[in-house]
Design a binder for these strands. Structure first.
Lengths: 148, 148
DNA sequence: CGCATAACGTTATCCGCATAACCAACTCTA
DNA sequence: TAGAGTTGGTTATGCGGATAACGTTATGCG
């Protein structure tokens, strides 16, 4: 593959990443949330309370990031940490009532953002987009056995 | 649009962004570069020396980020800042010889990364991918006049 | 059982990127 | 030409996310 094509792909991914995150930042600001935190809250809403290690895996983020984010979300009252039954090392993270309410507002923003993002994209393309992006993400997953 | 679809789209974008950046981090580490810096170097290689403000626009990044990144790249000897002719506020950023040589190595990684990213994706889809991603990026561009 | 190893979580430190606030210099216009 | 407003750049600060190093608790094996 020549450089021009490779550059087009890599640059486009970077640009989308930056802009999407920037838009999330703007949308979340009125709720007092920072980008990344919504992912944590939504994951808890999807799957229910879970250990930080599992959260780390679900968010594709390293454990120290989870530690700090949960601390801040806990300080904001959106999340609660309770000792894990049967494992004194672990703590279970769960949504508070306020957190659950906040998630509902995040979900609305989430839908608006997706619609906005897909504006002008044919329905067929839009339908295949998540799978396509997940394929790309899987291809560059650093945890897959490869040389890098 | 219902939440499940919106979530699939937003989550996929976030995951691709994280993994792609993580892979870039791993690939760039042997060169002593951090993700984001390669974009600056490549932009200088593409377009030639330019003012920081223009760099900020080209990278879709805010001016303070450019200030810090150029300082670090300058300290590493990859980049040089020279006073802009005709504007005593501005400084022109340009590649040093070492920086230009480094860019060649980055370009190789760049091609490898794109191939890796597109593994298993049909050629027709891959060919349209940059334009598609750029459309999505344009749709969520916070600088476009919108309510947010 | 006891010891080595693995797993959970935390702290410290670094970078990218953002906003807010500010100074210096350029430009436009009254 | 003088002042207003704009633009280029920097500093300060905060967050997400990463790695490295560490203490604590489970677990697996001899």
């Amino acid at each position: 593959m020549d450089f021009a094509q490779a550059d087009a792909v890599n640059q486009a991914i970077r640009l989308l990443a930056l802009r999407h995150r920037a838009r999330i930042t703007a949308l979340l600001a009125p709720l007092g949330l920072h980008p990344g935190q919504e992912a944590l809250l939504l994951e808890l809403a999807r799957t229910g309370p879970m250990i930080q290690a599992k959260l780390s895996g679900a968010l594709a983020v390293e454990p120290p990031s989870v530690t700090l984010m949960t601390r801040k979300l806990e300080a904001a009252g959106h999340v609660r940490r309770v000792p894990a039954p049967g494992d004194r090392r672990a703590s279970v993270v769960e949504l508070t009532e306020g957190g659950a309410a906040l998630v509902e507002r995040v979900k609305e923003l989430w839908c608006g953002l997706a619609e906005e993002t897909l504006a002008g994209v044919p329905d067929a393309t839009a339908a295949e987009l998540p799978a396509l992006l997940r394929t790309l993400a899987g291809n560059v997953d650093a945890r897959r056995g490869r040389e890098g």
